[in-house]
Design a binder for these strands. Structure first.
Lengths: 126, 126
DNA sequence: ACTTGACCTGGAGCGCACTCCAAGGGGGAA
DNA sequence: TTCCCCCTTGGAGTGCGCTCCAGGTCAAGT
């Protein structure tokens, strides 16, 4: 028996069972996850590997709809690698922009923290 | 006449007028923005400076409710600097964790991009 | 004075990404 | 066989952060 239950997949991936069902229903997976005779989902290693990638894309801020587009490209099979590449590269650029923006804002917040630290220290040692 | 209209503030800050009104109604500002005799808002430089900070906090992922808590501390006046500092430091740690997480995921995505780049190059030059 | 466009308020609506629920069907242990 | 828990589905509900709207007021130009 190759394949794990939704509970095991949930545990392994750090996503709720509800989220896993939602991703599948919403077309984020490469295929409907196979079912046992009783209708229970059975995730195999390829499913898990794919969902790990989905998780990375989501965790870096890719919207569900773009993950769906990417999944559709992969599902379509060979021949659209340029398109997949373009999608990933566009996302990469977006992530870099966000990292730069957040880093900049963080520097300003750090500055604010330094001011408060001075002020609190002064009161403590006065 | 010191003070700008909501449209000018919106323009200056890069936030919609609706968002500015929403922030005010939701207690994210240090005070209700003063009004002209006709009831129109008149933002002064201190309002704008504060909202710039709010924008930084929001852009780094601080939830509205925490910004509100921070605003309440500042409104309360001197004496709670430790609390403000703690709030900002907790946020700072959170932002650093997120930056690290995103950076890690980005590295994995970059790896994927490299694979596709190879594959696309190979087909192009084949 | 009149027109036009910006502004006001309270409240409804929206998009996103889940999250929860009700009603019912497996499937391994006692 | 019965018990019990995990699973199934479709669909409703939630929290967040805006965003839009109706109906009215105000201010600047002609």
């Amino acid at each position: 028996m190759t394949g794990v239950t939704i509970a095991e997949a949930s545990d392994e991936l750090g996503l709720s069972a509800d989220t896993l069902r939602y991703y599948e229903k919403d077309g984020l997976l490469l295929r409907p996850v196979p079912r046992t005779t009783g209708g229970h989902r059975q995730y195999d290693e390829r499913d898990l590997t794919w969902i790990r990638l989905v998780t990375r894309l989501r965790a870096t801020g890719m919207p569900i709809r773009d993950v769906r587009r990417y999944a559709a490209l992969v599902r379509a099979g060979h021949g659209n690698e340029e398109e997949r590449l373009a999608l990933l590269q566009a996302h990469r650029e977006q992530v870099l922009r966000e990292l730069a923006e957040v880093t900049g804002h963080l520097a300003a917040i750090d500055h604010k923290i330094a001011l408060y630290t001075d002020c609190v220290l002064e009161r403590t040692t006065a």
